[in-house]
Simulated scan of single mutants.
Amino acid sequence: MLPRPVPPPSRPLVVSADEDLLDDVLRVLAAAGTEAEVATGGPALRRAHREAGLVLLGADVLGAAPVRALPRRPGVVVVAAGAVPAPAWAAAVELGAERVAVLPDDEAWLAARAGEAVRSPVERGWLAVVGGACGGAGASTLATALAVATAARGEGVLLVDADPWGGGLDLLLGAEDAEGLRWPALAGVRGRLAGDALLAALPEAAGVHVLAAARDEPAPVAAEALAVVVEAARGCGLPVVVDLPRGAGFDPAAEAVLAEADLALLVVPARLRAASAARSLVAGGPWSAARVVVRTVPGGLSAAEVAAVTGSPVLTELGHDRGAPSRGERGEPPSVAPRSPLGTVTRLLLGELVRPERAA
């Protein structure tokens, strides 16, 4: 399912009964080019809290019953004038605030944050998740090829390696020596991450930004860190392709991205054991909505037989590419030429993902 257009954000909501603090906050928002909606309780507060792109809570109202009754949501900032007492910090954490901004020291940050919240929205990039039913299925190659094919259309794209023991997707792009961050450097990210800053810090090859696993420090990718990285790129309009570990089933990181995916692809070699493994993944688990891509093998099952074993319809077949191994050894990206096996499949996949007006 493709993401719907993002509606324009409403005005920031400011909640405070401190007139001096309110004046300071409104002045900062005016400098950021926006006006605020002010509310302190009742239906107006609940509506604005639900709809606002940014919610600014004065430290003076954190203990008020109407504020404490509000549900947790992203985009909440507590604003204070001067030192913040310990109870206010505790209340900010309880409300899920992303930051406590202390004025006047944090005025520049608050203005930038407000400007970000009211900026003209960018259509979110799509998310494709690729995994293999077993080791050696070819999922990493397909994920990389899909990213390369997207970049070949003139779009930016982020390729995320969520398989810490796969050797690193930068190898498939010939970018193993390129400067930039790998997973260990981002393993602890939480909350929000600026998409443009993320992309600027990553290696790029063949038009693809890649966040790869580090070969010298393999470690599982935390679900929250993966979600933050994916959201940062999608939030600035970039498509994202995530390569999951082989056979990833009820892994928290896998579940997090599969739940958000516009297209989930499970690559299944045309062998009975691989098809049987795929059946266990799609039977009511996080892969239940995945589309099956059958990688043909000599003497293997037919697509119809794979569909019968897995209990899932086959989206397409990926034929054997005799030149793929040698290209990989030379550090060349997968070929997505129009008549190549990967070119044929990625063209079909992009047809599933890309809106007609974007493809034009």
Rank of each mutant, 00 (worst) to 15 (best):
A360E: 07
A128L: 04
P66F: 00
G154I: 04
T296I: 01
L199R: 15
V6C: 06
A97E: 04
A139Q: 09
L173R: 09
A92K: 03
A289P: 10
P87D: 03
R50F: 00
G188T: 13
P341T: 08
L198Y: 06
P12M: 06
S288V: 04
L56I: 06
D18N: 15
T344H: 14
A304R: 15
A83W: 05
R99W: 06
A200I: 01
G138F: 05
A222Y: 02
V118W: 02
P71C: 00
G125M: 02
V293W: 10
G75M: 08
G167A: 01
V208Y: 03
V210D: 09
R73H: 00
L348F: 08
V157K: 12
D106G: 11
T150I: 03
L146E: 08
R322V: 11
W89G: 04
S326A: 15
A232D: 07
A307Q: 11
V230I: 02
V228N: 09
A162Y: 10
S340H: 11
H209R: 15
P298N: 01
L169N: 03
G96H: 03
R327P: 00
S288N: 05
G323P: 03
A337W: 09
V228W: 06
G328W: 08
P313K: 07
G41A: 15
V267I: 08
A64C: 03
P184T: 05
G311Q: 08
H209L: 06
V14N: 10
G125Y: 02
G156D: 15
T316A: 15
V93E: 14
R330M: 13
A149R: 14
A86G: 04
V93Q: 14
L159P: 11
R347W: 04
G75K: 05
A90W: 02
A275Q: 08
E94L: 12
S335H: 09
D106W: 11
F250H: 14
L21A: 14
A303H: 10
A117W: 03
L173G: 13
V84N: 11
A152V: 03
G311S: 07
G284K: 09
G188P: 08
T316K: 05
L301P: 07
A359W: 13
L103D: 08
G180R: 06
G53T: 03
P3R: 10
L258K: 12
V79A: 12
V129D: 05
P269S: 09
A151R: 12
V61D: 01
L146G: 07
S335C: 15
W109A: 13
R190I: 00
T344M: 13
L26V: 14
P66N: 01
W183A: 07
P85I: 01
D106F: 07
T310G: 03
E204D: 04
A219H: 08
R11I: 00
D177P: 00
E217H: 14
V61S: 10
P252S: 05
R72Q: 02
P338N: 14
